[in-house]
């Protein structure tokens, strides 16, 4: 239990620090184009690496995962909102799993 609480505390600290430090410390803009660019691309890289291939193992079986992934990709391409994309993917996965279950 101490291990979990300590882990949660550490997570909270390293989540808060990047949020609070720049806004409190930096009053002037960063000059280095390289650093600015690196920071700019970080979220895309993180989200990409986190999503694939993990999304393919996120449900009961890989077929329903692929169906859900395709649904999300198509809806996201047409720039539907976060909630719509997330819930549609969940629904498609559920329908696929129900079909498998009854086959």
């Amino acid at each position: 239990m101490n291990y979990i609480l300590l882990a949660v505390l550490l997570m909270a600290i390293v989540t808060y620090l990047p949020r609070v430090l720049p806004i409190v410390v930096f009053q002037r803009k960063i000059k280095s184009v390289r650093i600015k660019s690196f920071l700019y691309y970080t979220p895309y890289a993180v989200l990409g690496a986190m999503t694939f291939p993990s999304i393919l193992f996120s449900t009961g079986n890989m077929y329903s995962s692929i169906a859900g992934t395709l649904t999300a990709l198509i809806l996201a391409y047409y720039e539907q909102g976060l909630m719509k994309v997330a819930l549609s993917a969940v629904l498609v996965v559920a329908v696929c799993e129900l079909c498998f279950y009854h086959l």
Partner: peptide, 23 residues
Amino acid sequence: IWQDSLGIALYAMFIALIVPASK
């Protein structure tokens, strides 16, 4: 079935964040 299906929710949200930006 719903527990399994909800597992994809967060990843789908990530896709909703990165796809429009990549476009």
